[in-house]
Every structure is written in structure tokens, then in C-alpha cells.
Design a binder for these strands. Structure first.
Ligand SMILES: [Zn+2]
Ligand SMILES: [Zn+2]
Ligand SMILES: [Zn+2]
Ligand SMILES: [Zn+2]
Lengths: 139, 139
DNA sequence: TTGGAAATGATAATCATTTCCATTTTTGTG
DNA sequence: CACAAAAATGGAAATGATTATCATTTCCAA
């Protein structure tokens, strides 16, 4: 666990002071699995690995990690929340609908588009979402 | 009801042959309210207006309208599905987080961006989502 | 050591959405 | 019109994710 802390610190400059054991467990499992996974799936994975962590705690940890911008939250087509460890800079995703593989991509064009549109229609405090999904070359 | 059919026909070129009473009711209420609304909200509105339509039927009608590309489906932050009557061409939305007002906008830059990114990473059959949200000038 | 704060997890509650199924309405045909 | 088959409808129950409660456990600083 201490090693993980150090890795995380080095890799992401995250202050682990505010992180509890569960947060770190979730980061670890997200790191191991890669791609997006739902809270339920992450819980099952941890359980299968012998960790007795409770579902409630999984939800709590994920929520806290999302608040801290350490994981991305987006939604499956049916609305279920899925989570993914992500870089700390703003970015978007290219997701394979078949295998779930995900690429983080730059959204330069999007940023400009969002800003332009917001200005044109007099919106302020604007944010945006943009995701691309398709079938990857392996599938 | 027949008048509505004709209006819809003229306005959208939709084949009403495949549309039943419930579909038309939902179109009408969506037209009246404008903006996005959830299935539950639409059901309540109809009920309040004296229509005894069942929740099941509301869900069914919305599903069918989404399939026919007559309404847009997107998601609130909590994952709840919200629906909106929309033009038949591909477009995106600029939504006010405060009052819910929505503007349909062109996504030329997005379309290009999505295509470019998909090509770069070898994805095929790609689709995309892109929404902008902020506070409108009135709010 | 110890008292309070934070974390945990089982259980129950919530709430949107789906499934089931019996009943009603519509439609086509003679 | 009468009547049977097909489609539509809606109430109730089931499902499934997420959240709220709350008693218990773990941490930690004084
Ligand atoms: Zn794939
Ligand atoms: Zn962006
Ligand atoms: Zn507004
Ligand atoms: Zn587009």
C-alpha cells in the first residue's frame, strides 16, 4: 500500500493525505483493469480477489475520487455509471463498444467549438462532454 | 388527433402509419413543453391534464419515438433519461443548467474531430456524443 | 491509554425502468 | 353489424443501480 502511495504521488501529484485505504484499493483495481468499469463490477472484482470491501464503500470511494478528479465518470447507454482512472488534464475518450478499450484523446477542436457556441448564444460557466465510440481495430 | 397527425406530417415528414395514439400524445406534450423532460415528468404532466395514460405506455411510446429518431434521448447527471422532440438531422445541444432551456446547435467541428480521431486510432462504426451546458443569458 | 472523529459495511429504502399479464381497443373480413 | 385476431394499454410486481441509515470498528492525536 505504501508503494502504491508513492507511485500515485509520483505519477499524479495527488495528495494521499486525504485518501483512505478504500480510495487506494479502488485506484489500484482501476489501474489493474484499465478501461471503464461500473461500481458493481469493481466491487465484484475486489470480492473475487478476497477483499471483503463492502459495496457501499466502493460507491463512496468512487464518489470521492470523482470529486477529486482522479477518476472519470461517464455513463453506459443504459445510464449505469462507469468509472475510469484518468489523467488530471481535461480530455475526452474514444471507447470501443465491443471490448471496452479506451483511448484518452485531445479535444482541441471541441474546446474551441464549445467556447464559440457558448459565446454565440450568451451562455456562461460552460462545460461540455464529448465522447466517441466505435469498434476498435482488434475487434 | 388527426390534425396533429397532419401537422407532424407536414413538419417532419414522419410516417404516422407506425404511430399510435400514445406516440402522438407524447409528441404533443413534448412539443408543448419544449426542452427536455424525463419519462416520469411527462407522465405526470399528462396525468395532471386529465389523461389517464399509464407509465408503462409512456415508456413504450418514448422508446418507440427514440427508435424512430423522432425524439432525442440523453441523460441527466444522475443518469436519468431525458427526452426531447428534435429535428431529424444530426445535431448537438447547448443546455442551461439552471432553467433547462436548450438550443440545438451545429456540430461541424465535432463531426470532423470524431472522424479524424477514429481514423487515427483505427476505429470503425463510430458515433459520438457532445453536449455543452452552462448558464443562459436569462438566468 | 483513551475519547472522539472518520471509516466501514450490512441492511433497508429509493427510484427509474422493465417485465408480466389480464383487459380493452382497434382492425380486418364476411 | 358481428366476430375473431392482432395490437395497444395499464396496473402490479420485479429488477437493478444507487443512496440513506446506523451500529460497529479503526485511527489518531492528546
Ligand atoms: Zn475493441
Ligand atoms: Zn473538452
Ligand atoms: Zn437558463
Ligand atoms: Zn455530431
Amino acid at each position: 500500500m505504501i508503494m502504491l502511495k508513492k507511485i500515485m504521488l509520483k505519477k499524479r501529484g495527488i495528495c494521499t493525505k486525504t485518501m483512505n485505504k478504500s480510495d487506494l484499493k479502488l485506484i489500484a483495481v482501476l489501474e489493474r483493469t484499465g478501461g471503464f468499469a461500473s461500481a458493481q463490477e469493481l466491487h465484484q472484482i475486489l470480492r473475487r480477489e478476497g477483499d471483503g470491501i463492502g459495496l457501499t464503500t466502493v460507491y463512496r470511494a468512487l464518489q470521492s475520487l470523482v470529486d477529486d478528479k482522479i477518476v472519470d465518470l461517464l455513463r453506459r447507454e443504459d445510464g449505469e455509471a462507469i468509472y475510469r482512472l484518468c489523467g488530471d488534464t481535461h480530455h475526452h475518450h474514444l471507447v470501443c463498444k465491443s471490448c471496452g478499450d479506451t483511448v484518452e484523446i485531445e479535444g482541441g477542436a471541441i474546446e474551441k467549438w464549445a467556447k464559440t457556441m457558448a459565446e454565440e448564444f450568451g451562455f456562461r460557466d460552460v462545460g461540455h462532454t464529448a465522447e466517441i465510440f466505435g469498434i476498435c481495430s482488434k475487434c
